[in-house]
Nucleic acid binder design. Structure first.
Lengths: 223, 223
DNA sequence: GTACACTTACTTACCGATAGGTCAGAGTCT
DNA sequence: AGACTCTGACCTATCGGTAAGTAAGTGTAC
């Protein structure tokens, strides 16, 4: 009612992005087709091409939106008060949220498929990691200042280690369908950054509430 | 001359595995086709189906051979004397060797594509990680005994953190085409496991010999 | 030792399904 | 009328996989 849209007020383009994003994060960029999106949205493949001329263009839009949202989430972490260490935990929590949906980080997935991606997508993936890294560098330096974090290597190397460690924790935990696995790995990872005599970093998986590993059949639907 | 083979003494099946392995580690299981292998070996696609009835069967054989070789490498690390810490460094070195070829760990790549894999391949991927984890657990416990390693969490959680951290370091470093990035992340990762007042873990990248990042064009050929 | 049966390791030709993509036009809104 | 959004029909290329055939080697009987 707010506007004259026929279909949905959500906007077809953004609904396409929603579906495509989920598919990439679940099956990879080479693991789905325009037909899959069209079927799910019950529109024609040609309609997809109207909104996104090519799959490569869709991919670019996908990364752009994902990165913009992710950076917005990081900016919102910056406004909340608390130690750098707390922000680092929240950062890991962002990854956990994605994994809870049975999904991989969009850019982590695309990093695996990097060699098969068109150049503009490659650049965007690199850009995403660069932005994460520089945000983390900032947090790490603040953590060194406020005493909530302690690390021997440079802030840059440590930031790279954190990005890599969290991406890898998602990558490996997802096949097991076990978020506790991610939490344990992440906690163990960040434990190396905590001054001695401090409480554990990321909340360790509570055996009472943690979902048990669903080894044969993880969350998301296969194909 | 040793036998009556016409083609090559290497054996067609193993040459198929060689090419397929490289393709999976570079482009992913969904990123190459039987035609790619056939073209490279200059044989027909049907010949591939003679040796491996389906792509799924090829994938299973691929993981089996990769895992068997990897475990053999781990066993050989066990025979060499030295601290647990040294074996941990060598373990990270195995990953580095793969990355130097511009490749991802086979099972790390397949973990990303997990949702699209046939069930037997899924089981094999899980098995690979389980084997790595238990080998690492062993090393970690020995390291605690011989005093060369120190970690707060359980050996199991720490082992999972190491697998995840190294896989993630490969995943992220590869798009940058920069092995130094991997080395820095791995060193920073393992630094958390080293008793205070000890030399750094994995040899940090030497600025003199390290290859510079090849941002626009990494090593392997695109498609 | 040579004829015959059988196996191995392929090839050529082809299949139906699906991939990403194009194009002319129809329906709807302002 | 014109812009916007979308459909149906269609295109070519490629996907994994199959059927039938063949050249060369192996094993066995006589």
């Amino acid at each position: 009612m707010t506007n004259g849209r026929i279909r949905d007020e959500a906007g077809t383009a953004s609904r396409i992005l929603d579906v495509a994003e989920r598919l990439v994060q679940t099956c990879g960029f080479n693991g789905f087709s325009y037909a899959d999106i069209a079927a799910e949205l019950q529109i024609s493949k040609a309609a997809l091409h109207y909104h996104f001329a090519s799959k490569a263009a869709l991919g670019e839009a996908l990364i752009a939106r994902y990165a913009s949202r992710f950076m917005a989430a990081l900016a919102s972490l910056d406004t909340a008060d608390g130690t750098a260490r707390a922000r680092l935990d929240s950062y890991a929590g962002l990854y956990l949220q994605v994994l809870r949906n049975g999904q991989m980080c969009l850019c982590g997935m695309l990093a695996a498929e990097y060699q098969t991606l068109p150049q503009p997508m490659r650049n965007a993936v690199i850009g995403f990691f660069d932005q994460n890294e520089s945000w983390l560098e900032n947090v790490l330096e603040q953590g060194r200042a406020d005493g909530s974090l302690r690390y021997a290597a440079s802030a840059q190397d440590t930031a790279r280690m954190i990005v890599a460690g969290l991406e890898g924790s998602m990558l490996v935990a997802r096949p097991y369908g076990d978020t506790a696995r991610f939490q344990a790995a992440a906690a163990s990872l960040l434990a190396g950054l905590v001054p001695p005599g401090s409480e554990p970093a990321l909340s360790s998986p509570d055996p009472a509430t943690a979902q048990p590993p669903s080894h044969p059949a993880p969350a998301a639907a296969g194909r």
